[in-house]
Amino acid sequence: MSEKKVSIKDLLGLSDEEMRKPLPNPTPWSRPFWEAAKQHRLVLRRCSACGNIDHPPYPYCTACLADEHEWIEAQGKGTLYAYAVNYYGVPFPFWDDMPYVVAMIDLPEGPRMISNIVECDIEKLRNGMELEVVFDDVSDEISLPKWKPV
């Protein structure tokens, strides 16, 4: 694959704005997650009243409606539940990344996350394979947790 790819930006004459990737815009109740991610730590919101873990988090516990909670450190481990490989028809900012893998990752703490699988040949993807978290510093403010094979 020595063929040099032409960016969709040059091909269609797109502006920087049109090529800007969408980033999370943290809410008051999700900010601790993104602040931890920035330090390359994966954290989860656990209700102090009932122990329920909410991910994505909401302002109060979705199991018992209590406010009190703590942010616990996740192990940073996961298993691959299912995946897709995007080859066509994605928004322009992701065009040059194709093919890329979008996946559902199950955490031992309970939650499931959508993320990308990185540092893995597409042919080697297997449902149930073990993964570990890596952080992609996509801006000064945001680091996205992504996953690679153990």
Partner: peptide
């Protein structure tokens, strides 16, 4: 917040 930044689409 949790999916779109990963290039998720309806098709994916």
């Amino acid at each position: 917040e949790w999916e779109v930044p990963y290039g998720m689409t309806y098709n994916s």
